[in-house]
Nucleic acid binder design. Structure first.
Lengths: 110, 110
DNA sequence: CTGATCTACAACCATTTGGTTGTAGGATAT
DNA sequence: ATATCCTACAACCAAATGGTTGTAGATCAG
């Protein structure tokens, strides 16, 4: 099993990428289908450049990939990025449960 | 079952709160034990005010709660906030798996 | 070749963020 | 009563964020 150590900077970028409504919506879209950057831009009430920037943020966070197809750039969801975030939150969950279990033990002892 | 609709603003706050190394570290600490704000501040190479602000960000995101005890303010992890984020990411996961399944079906038809 | 389309990126702007120091109020200890 | 401790918050600053318009390079269609 690969340990896949996540740097703080990488996690910062991952969570930061999710911390915007438009980007979360893009994530949902590209998880289901394929979109060019222009195709995505058509969905939102903001400029093409703004959407292109959002896609760039997602790309830097490894949450999407882009593939050139003719003059278009096809944006696809990257499952790895999502998995990394989920895994981290699962760790927090484990820590939490351990604590709850510990407290339960303490209460049982009384 | 409570649906517990999450507003975009609430999700923005939750992910934003996680998008900082210091705040993630605070989350790990308060998941395990109890800390006053001063107790937390002692752990980091920054001013008390900076840490107090980080705690305030986590509190606004419903990721921690504070309880006054004498002149101290005890910071505790709030499991609900963590669960909300995990649940959202699980939704993305479900969407993703549906897509993978759909592609597998298409490939199977050929 | 020419014009239209798709993308990337620079420059700019307002707001937010993450840090600082300083001030002030409530709780505790002596 | 007084000094100390813990906290909150204001004011400030530099950098990042989320948006804009404009420019320019590829690629495609006629």
């Amino acid at each position: 099993m690969v340990v896949d150590q996540l740097s703080d900077a990488e996690l910062d970028r991952l969570f930061q990428a999710f911390a915007d409504t438009t980007r979360r919506d893009i994530m949902r879209r590209v998880a289901v289908g394929e979109y060019s950057v222009t195709g995505l831009a058509a969905l939102y009430a903001m400029s093409f450049a703004a959407v292109q920037k959002h896609v760039a943020v997602l790309e830097r966070a490894s949450l999407v990939t882009k593939e050139k197809r003719g003059r278009e750039q096809i944006v696809r969801g990257n499952h790895d990025g999502l998995e990394k975030v989920r895994r981290l939150l699962d760790e927090y969950e484990v820590i939490w449960r351990q604590r709850v279990a510990r407290i339960a033990d303490i209460l049982a002892e009384e």
